[in-house]
């Protein structure tokens, strides 16, 4: 079971802060609307609790998964509630439950994930790149549990870096999670000098 010190969690929170700042800027350019980010949280939680903190496991979400591959492996997951997805897609007159809407949501995942991990790659010197996004519309619990179980050898603890993005002018928000796979986090922390 992996554990993290407060110092390590602080460092991860700071990385998440910079990463999600870049991601918000990229999304803002794509949408033509200002995008705000919340102060990110970083938490190492037992899997069952990691699912619970994200919300009611029964609630429907549009889920966008961007697998990160390379020297640092992770999953970037965006969780967008239905009304927020409608708002987001309305920027381009799309319906989130249609094929074009899903593709648009995937593109948002791609842009957010790519800009986020570019920051991590620059700061750590580790090679990492995004795989194509996968978009689902399903129960929050099912989405998160599937990602957590498929991505981690560590089945006890999930490290979640969570930022909420808010798009101005289009009242909507989405959660942005970076879920590192296995031991890569300690390598990442080592590279930025936090042991």
């Amino acid at each position: 079971m992996s554990t993290y010190t407060e110092t390590q969690l602080d460092a991860l929170r700071e990385l998440a802060n910079i990463g999600s700042g870049q991601a918000a800027a990229a999304l803002s350019t794509m949408l033509g609307h200002p995008v705000d980010i919340s102060v990110p949280t970083a938490a190492a939680l037992p899997l069952a609790e990691a699912v619970a903190v994200a919300g009611n496991p029964d609630e429907a979400r549009h889920g966008i998964l961007v697998p990160i591959v390379g020297e640092f492996e992770a999953a970037v997951v965006l969780l967008v509630p239905e009304p927020d997805a409608v708002q987001l897609c309305s920027v381009y007159n799309l319906d989130p439950s249609g094929e074009d809407g899903a593709s648009f949501l995937g593109e948002i995942g791609n842009i957010l994930g790519t800009s986020y991990i570019n920051v991590l790659a620059e700061m750590s010197g580790l090679d990492m790149e995004p795989a194509p996004p996968q978009v689902v519309h399903d129960m929050l619990g099912a989405i998160l549990a599937s990602v957590l179980l498929a991505s981690g050898e560590d089945t006890d603890t999930a490290l979640l870096l969570d930022s909420a993005l808010t798009v101005e002018g289009k009242p909507c928000s989405l959660s942005f999670l970076l879920i590192p796979v296995g031991g890569g986090v300690h390598e990442l922390l080592g590279r930025i000098g936090v042991v």
Binding site: L47, A48, V51, D58, D138, M139, G141, A142, L144, A145
Partner: peptide, 23 residues
């Protein structure tokens, strides 16, 4: 919840698994 089990013997109790994906 994930990784847990529950047992019910009392009438009216409802056991649930919410949000099963690959589980």
């Amino acid at each position: 919840r994930m990784g847990e089990w529950v047992v019910g013997t009392e009438a009216g109790t409802v056991l649930s698994c919410i949000g099963l994906g690959s589980c």
